[in-house]
């Protein structure tokens, strides 16, 4: 069969595959998951960018029918699309935890997720534990972290501190994590990170019916409306179990609350394409929200049993 080359970029590797012309998104996605040995596939997706808008490969649509650049290798990023409500309970496999750790760490360092200075230092210390193992002053000599990107620039710029002083601060915490294996250190990292307000939120620039600029946030728990100046605390939240229906028509998006006394919330997003993405993220997040509130599937039960062994 005729094939074309795809390049898959994960948080820590790049791979190339020969993809058959007729393959659907699912065929490629499954191949990537198998190659990675990843079984908790439901959190992930293959992302591409089209005209500055993020898009995700649809499982039931042919890879080549997507609006991707046909120049080979066709490139996709294998990333977490949905986030667990509780990393420790839901992320079973080490590979899943590791990919989440890498993705969330990057978001924090890139300041996509706001993280206060103290928490940033603590997170850095767990990242160091994960990478270097137990602290040993005879091995980890002054300057051993000099080449590492460990803190968001905003945090570094807040204080009059030299790199040596930062290293000292981080190392003081790092020394406390003695005995933690890599996977444990990464899980401790995620447990702190998941409490940050912006963790797991997909933000979209929207305008309400009066034309006021706002942000819509989609996450594991529901939909949130923010003032663009404050991405931390929503002005309004619509938890999944208080929503009756969501829909879009062209650039308009409607959230219909369950309670008829609460006003329907309508807004406009910049493009029809964005509304499609919002709806996709809503369906996926709500699906996981419901599944969490049911008993574990047989597959997850088996994985948890294996992980315990």
């Amino acid at each position: 069969p005729k094939t074309f080359t795809v390049r898959i970029v994960t948080m820590d590797a790049e791979m190339e595959f020969n993809c058959e012309m007729k393959w659907k998104g699912k065929d490629l996605f499954d191949l990537v998951c198998r190659t990675l040995g990843l079984r908790e596939t439901w959190f992930f997706g293959l992302q591409y960018t089209i005209k500055d808008t993020v898009a995700w490969l649809k499982m039931d649509k042919k890879v080549l029918d997507h609006d991707v650049s046909k120049e080979e290798p066709v490139t996709f990023h294998f990333l977490a699309k949905f986030y667990p409500e509780n990393a420790e309970e839901e992320l079973v496999q080490e590979i899943t935890q590791h990919l989440f750790f890498l993705q969330v760490k990057k978001q924090i360092l890139d300041e996509k997720i706001y993280c206060p200075p103290e928490a940033s230092v603590l997170l850095a210390s767990y990242a160091v534990q994960a990478k270097y193992g137990d602290y040993d002053p005879s091995v980890h000599k002054r300057g051993f972290l000099a080449q590492e990107e460990l803190l968001p620039k905003r945090v570094i710029n807040l204080y009059q501190m030299t790199p040596e002083m930062w290293e000292e601060r981080i190392t003081a915490w790092y020394a406390e994590h003695r005995g933690r294996a890599r996977d444990e250190a990464e899980m401790e990292y995620l447990k702190i990170a998941q409490d940050l307000e912006m963790y797991g939120v997909n933000y979209f620039a929207i305008r309400n019916k009066k034309g006021t600029e706002l942000l819509l946030g989609v996450d594991a728990l529901g939909l949130h409306i923010y003032d663009p100046e404050n991405r931390l605390t929503p002005k309004i939240s619509f938890p999944w179990n208080e929503i009756r229906n969501i829909s879009y028509s062209d650039k308009e998006f409607t959230i219909k609350p369950l309670d008829k006394k609460i006003d329907v919330f309508k807004f406009n997003s910049s493009k029809l394409r964005v509304n499609k993405l919002i709806l996709q993220l809503c369906i996926g997040n709500h699906d996981l929200f419901m599944r969490r509130r049911k008993a574990d599937s047989l597959e997850v039960q088996q994985m948890k049993a294996q992980a315990r062994e």
Binding site: W240, N241, R244, N245, Y248, D250, L272, I283, D287, K294
Partner: peptide, 20 residues
Amino acid sequence: LRQQRMGTYGVRAAWRRLPQ
């Protein structure tokens, strides 16, 4: 392909469909 210009998702209905 003509773009689908409308979409809807019944959040409540999805709950109801969920086997208990």
